[in-house]
Amino acid sequence: MTIKDVAKKANVSIATVSRILNNKPGYTKETEKKVLQVIQELGYHPNGIARGLINKRTHTIGILVPEISSMLISEFISGIEQVTHQHGSSVIVCHTESMGQKTRQYLQVLKEKQIDGIIFTSGVLKEDYYQLIKDTDIPMVLLATESYEFPVPYVKVNDHHAAYSATEYLINKGHRKIGMISGDKEDMIAGQPRINGFMQAMQAHELPVKDEWVVSENGFSFKDGVNGFSKLIHQLDDITAVFAASDEIALGVLSAAYKMNIKVPDQLSVIGYDNLKIAEMSIPPLTSIAQPLVEMGKKATEMVFEMMDKKRGVESRIFPHEIVERQSVRELK
C-alpha cells in the first residue's frame, strides 16, 4: 500500500495527499475528508522515513532534560507533546542527568538522526553543546533556562522577580524572620537569581538578612528540602516563614517540620515555587509561585516549528508568574 494507491482511489494528485498528511495548505475541506476516508478504507500508514525523504524532515523533536522523574519536567513534556502531535511529529526525550558527557552524546545522536528541532531544558548551555548544533540547520530553543553567551532563543519566567514576589508576599503577611532554602547557589539559571530576589526583597523592606539564613542544597528535590530545613532551623531558630525555591523543596520542609512537631502554618509559614499539581495535594495545601509550565512547553515547541518553517530566528519569551494562595502561609497580627 503506497501513497499512489491513496491518490488513485481518491482521484487526487500524490502532492495533494502529501499536503494533507503533512498538514500543509492547498486543498478544500471536501478533498481532505475524501482523502482521509480513503486512507481509512485502505488502511494506509505513511512511512515516516519516506515522508522524511519527501519533505527533508524526520518529524521528531528532541528534548534534553536533566531529571526525567522531576514533576516540573513532566509538565513541560505535556505541553511539548501537545504541540508536536498537532504538527504530526513525535518527541524523543533524552535524560542527561545534568552530566556533560551524556548531554554531548545525546546531542551527537540527535544531530546524526537529523532531528527536526531541539528543546534544551533547565540546564546551562555550555560552549561545546552549542558548537555541536551551531553548524547544522537544527533549530534549538531553551526552556526554563537562558544563555547570555550564545544567541539561542529561550522561554522562561524571570526567576529573580518571581523570588522577590514570593519573599514580599511573606513580608506583607507580617513575617520578618524569613529563611530560604535554595538549589545550588552556583547554578546561574535557577539558583543564584532566586537567592538574589530573596535578598533584594528583604533589603528593600529594610529587614535583617544574613547569608546563613539562605541554605543552598545540591538541587531542588524533596530530599534537599528535608536536609535544608534541618540546617536552617538551627541557624535561625525563631524563624516564622520559609521561601522554598521549588515545590519539591517545600514538600520536604513540610515533612521535616511535621517530624519536628512544628505546625504549618500555625508555627511556620511555607511558600513554594513552580505550582506543581502536587502542591494542592499536600497537607496543608501549598501556597506557591506559579510558572505556567504546560504553556511554556507549548510556546517553546511552537517556536521550534516556526524556526523550521520560516528558517529564521524567533523572539525569546518571558512568561508571567503569579502567586497561588492555598493554606501554608499564615498572616501574623
Rank of each mutant, 00 (worst) to 15 (best):
E280Q: 12
T287H: 00
K299I: 08
V324L: 10
I283S: 07
G313S: 12
E295W: 12
N275L: 06
S288I: 05
A290P: 02
I318N: 11
M281K: 07
G272K: 05
N275K: 06
E325D: 07
E315P: 11
I289L: 07
K298H: 08
I289P: 01
M308E: 08
A300C: 09
R312W: 12
T287F: 01
E322D: 12
K299L: 06
E295L: 11
I318W: 13
E306D: 13
K298E: 14
G313I: 15
I271N: 03
M308R: 06
S269M: 03
A279D: 00
M281G: 02
A300N: 05
V314R: 08
M296T: 04
H321K: 11
K298V: 12
I271F: 06
R317M: 15
L276W: 08
R312L: 08
K277R: 14
E295H: 11
I271H: 00
K311H: 15
I278D: 00
I289K: 00
I278C: 04
R312C: 08
K311P: 06
K311T: 11
E302Q: 14
V324Y: 03
P292N: 09
L286V: 07
N275T: 02
T287I: 05
R312K: 15
M307W: 09
G313T: 15
S316P: 08
V270F: 10
S282W: 00
Y273A: 01
N275E: 12
S269V: 01
I278G: 00
K310F: 13
S269P: 01
G272R: 04
E280T: 14
I283L: 07
P320L: 10
L276D: 03
V324R: 06
Y273P: 00
V270R: 04
Y273C: 03
Q291A: 00
V304H: 03
S282A: 15
R317K: 15
K311S: 13
F319K: 02
V314S: 12
L276I: 04
A290G: 04
V270W: 06
V304Y: 02
I323V: 14
F319E: 09
K298N: 06
E315V: 15
A290H: 06
I278Y: 05
I283G: 03
M281Q: 09
E280P: 02
A290S: 09
I323K: 05
S282H: 00
Q291E: 11
F319C: 07
E280L: 03
H321M: 06
P320Q: 10
P292R: 05
L286R: 01
K277F: 09
L293N: 03
P284E: 06
L293T: 02
E302I: 08
E295V: 04
A290Q: 14
K299C: 13
D274A: 08
G297N: 05
I318M: 15
E280C: 12
P284I: 12
P320N: 13
A290F: 06
I278N: 04
V270K: 08
F319R: 04
I278R: 04
V304M: 11
M308N: 05
I283P: 01
M303L: 15
T287R: 01
K310S: 10
